[in-house]
């Protein structure tokens, strides 16, 4: 049984002398000004790459091809929104962004609905083979996407789902399901059984219990899951690269640019920055759920 606190076999610390050990002095020295400075330095270092991309995206091609982005501080007059204007008038980039939006929305809503239904059955219904089926679902959590690419490519080719939004959304839905079912089922079993009993005795149908009781009570879990699924599909490259050609999400559009000889940094940098603004907004707006989902789902 997993519990958060109260480990009974806590190793008892051996009594020790009160001498100023080496470790103690190190920790104490570190815990003041030097530690603050060190961490501030590391924190800034961690931001530099992302900021670098942002500043690069503001510089005209003529400048980037000879200078680094940091020269924007010495000559701020170089900064321009020209690159952004250009990619917004670039049909390939704008339609790719739109494709990404559609894929992400579809691949977030659909798996959550399907997973919630299944998770409810796994949590609160009794049927033969339930536990084995659930173990199967858990096993599928780590199956690499690569295992499905070739067969699904062939299948899509035959049923005309290749290079379609639907094909990509269905694929993302399937591969999002195992973890979603696992997490939601674990959340659902934590809902007090008396509530369900009461509802069943009152004659509520299962679907009614599901929509009126389970879903409203579970929205924190669903929110975490939705954020993860959204980011995961927004950031996908390999699925779209393998199962589509002209239905390009933004990652594939940038990849295509990157592959060209003499890569077009004035397109790549703003497009890449644009592609990560939505995830960053989602991240900052829903940080709490993001972290919760991460803590719950670190098995994938």
């Amino acid at each position: 049984m997993a519990t958060v606190a109260g480990h009974p076999e806590t190793p008892l610390i051996e009594p020790v002398d009160r001498g100023e050990g080496l470790g103690h002095s190190i920790v104490r020295a570190l815990s003041h000004a030097p530690l603050t400075i060190l961490l501030a330095f590391i924190g800034v270092m961690w931001l530099v790459p992302t900021l670098g991309l942002f500043f690069t995206s503001l510089l005209p091609a003529s400048v980037i091809s000879s200078e680094g982005w940091w020269t924007i501080f010495s000559t701020p007059s170089n900064a321009t929104l020209e690159n952004y204007r250009n990619i917004f008038s670039d049909e390939a980039i704008t339609s790719a962004l739109l494709t990404t939006v559609w894929i992400s929305i579809g691949s977030t809503i659909l798996p959550i609905i399907v997973a919630a239904l299944a998770a409810y059955a796994f949590a609160w219904m009794d049927f033969p083979g339930r536990d084995w089926l659930f173990i199967g679902v858990i096993a599928m959590i780590v199956v690499p996407i690569q295992m499905a690419l070739i067969p699904i490519f062939s299948l899509y080719d035959r049923v005309h789902l290749f290079d379609t939004l639907a094909g990509l959304i269905l694929f993302h839905t399937a591969f999002g399901l195992p973890l979603a079912i696992f997490l939601l089922r674990n959340f659902f079993v934590g809902i007090p059984g008396e509530l369900l009993e009461a509802a069943r005795i009152d004659g509520a149908s299962e679907i009614r219990i599901f929509t009126r009781l389970i879903l409203p009570l579970s929205w924190p879990a669903i929110a975490s899951l939705a954020i993860f699924q959204f980011l995961w599909t927004w950031n996908d490259l390999i699925v779209a690269l393998s199962l589509a050609r002209s239905t390009q999400p933004i990652t594939v559009a940038i990849f295509t640019q990157l592959r060209q000889f003499g890569a077009n940094i004035e397109i790549i940098a703003p497009a890449a920055f644009l592609s990560l603004t939505i995830p960053l907004v989602v991240f900052f707006a829903f940080q709490r759920y993001f972290v919760q989902g991460l803590l719950a789902g670190s098995v994938k």
Binding site: I42, G52, I254, Q287
Partner: peptide
């Protein structure tokens, strides 16, 4: 500090690669 270090998690692996390619 945690926000700064954790932020790249929201970025796609692919975009992170583009960032470092430029770096």
């Amino acid at each position: 500090f945690k926000t700064a270090v954790f932020m790249p998690m929201a970025i796609s692996m692919f975009a992170a690669g583009v960032i470092w390619h430029i770096m």
